[in-house]
Design a protein around this nucleic acid. Structure first.
Lengths: 144, 144
DNA sequence: CTTGACCTTAAACCTCACTTCAAGGTTAGG
DNA sequence: CCTAACCTTGAAGTGAGGTTTAAGGTCAAG
């Protein structure tokens, strides 16, 4: 298997496979005499693992940790479980924030659709107000 | 008001105020003879607006659009409403994804807590599986 | 032998919203 | 006068997770 083959199999660009190698997520592949990377099934399975974990919201750092733990050792399972627990917590937190946001935004849109003075956009008005009471961390980035 | 004053008032670092000025989110402030920026209440209100909009998940690009529309014009309200609608849609989409994730992750954690062979971590097993379902790419050569 | 699809590398670039740095100038207080 | 705390600028750095580019080498088909 050449790089294009596992890349296609795993559904990622070849550049990403090289990037993972450089980053240490997959081992350095042995080369053919011409210098081409050659792969066996191990790397394909590893790329699957990475892909699944990424889809579940694990960062590449998390994934590296898990890959390093993949000795079939009961302690590894506990470490992985802890990682997954933390991720569930983070996801739940994120869900709470987004639900709040959805509520606020959909109310604003609704107000826009109710009759109002044509020169007074309710959204612009609300946004312009001096302060709303509620400590409101935004999703994503945070102010310094 | 000097830059530190509005920055404190708005709860952002001075560097951020300068950054917003460079980016065109707030107008270039007039300078004192020594070159210091001096501000009136307008900019403070604008910073408030930016802060609120950011908390609702609008990007700086979105915010710039809204600020450029802030003539008291009924068309502006419709444009802002469209922006908010799009944001609500995005938030809902994000919510769906996160809920799916939460379900999957919490099941995995639960499986870890049930009794299982000590050397077989259910999480590592699930992550390592070839695929849940695959559209099976055709065996032709494709760009990677 | 030529074409085109594939492969190699290092290094630069991307997004987003800032933050930090370097190298200075200004001002208020003591 | 001195010092600390402010302020100025442009440029570069951060983080995450890659993507793109440049400049080439390899290989199978026609």
């Amino acid at each position: 298997m050449k790089i294009g083959d596992i890349a296609t199999a795993a559904g990622v660009p070849t550049a990403t496979v090289r990037f993972y190698e450089r980053r240490g997520l997959i081992p350095r592949a042995p080369r053919t005499p011409a210098g081409y990377r050659k792969y066996g099934g191990d790397t394909a399975r590893r790329l699957q693992f990475i892909k699944h974990a990424k889809e579940l919201g694990f960062s590449l750092d998390d994934i590296q940790t898990m890959l390093e733990l993949r000795t079939d050792d009961p302690a590894a399972c506990r470490a992985v479980e802890a990682l997954a627990q933390a991720k569930v917590q983070a996801v739940r937190e994120h869900l709470r924030e987004l639900r709040r946001l959805e509520r606020i935004l959909s109310r604003l849109v609704q107000k826009c659709e109710e009759p109002h003075a044509p020169a007074a956009c309710p959204i612009l008005e609300v946004l312009g107000k001096p302060a709303t009471r509620q400590p409101a961390p935004a999703p994503g980035r945070r102010l310094a």
